[in-house]
Amino acid sequence: MSVKAQEKPLSLKLFTVGFLTLWMILAAFPFLWTLWGSFKVEGDFFSKANWAWAITGELTQVETGGAFTGQGYEGAWIQEEFWRAALNSTLVCLFVVTISLTFGTLGGYALSRSTYRYAFWFLIIALIFRALPPITLVSGYLPVFFQWNLWGHLSTAVIVLVAINQPFTLWMLHSFFKNIPKDLDESAMVDGCTRFQAFRHVIIPVMWPGVITTGLFSFLLAYNDFAVTAMILSKENQTMIPKIASFLGTTQTKGNVMFAVAAVVSVTAPLFVMVMFFQRQIVSGLTAGAVKG
């Protein structure tokens, strides 16, 4: 077939380029703008006089003597102890990812290998659980957590997030394990392995691509969660996202909204790095469920 037949008319080409440029601006510009603005003072980032001051930093120069200032970061990380929230977030994410993956690989493997009907219904129930907004469950947790003094601890949040994470993790790992040929573990069992030994020695060595992808999404869920962590963590145990929300309540009145801007940039940075390194895995994870139907 000639290449000419596939060629697009000029108008369509221009439209495509224009549309892509517009989308790129929409997708990337807000982040660049906030990153740039986080090094200015509030009078520039929210400028009453001229919006362009957020770029040039007129007031920043007047107030601090330089075009850039780290005041927002200093205020957020040191004065408002954002480092504590960052530490909490790290701990929560680490444990949520490890535990969800451990539970999820065991369950997902069993679900992919069972031929009985209940495995199917198990997955359907998990789908229903996945559809529930997590916050609807919170009022069920609170009375029990108060009574047994579990409220406010990081470990409680970890377990709750693991549970909320399970339906999704199971679905994803189930579809990954489906792609690993059955013959592999079955031949190990013919050679005398038990089911668990077959899983341990044959499946675990080949499952890592799927596990890493699922782990990324578990991490995102734990990292991004606001509804649950805001409700079940005490003030000193807050993770980053509820902490930012609390900045909005307190610091906006103090005129220190720049703390929140700096914190927002700090939260975004790890996500940027993650997308940069794991773009392929994220894309494959998003499409894994869909393409197989």
Partner: peptide, 22 residues
């Protein structure tokens, strides 16, 4: 693809704050 992924990967609370400030 990298830049297209950003609005989705970003924490919803943070992403909406960024837009809100703008």
């Amino acid at each position: 693809i990298f830049f297209s992924l950003l609005p989705m990967i970003i924490t919803p609370l943070v992403g909406s704050l960024i837009l809100f400030w703008m």
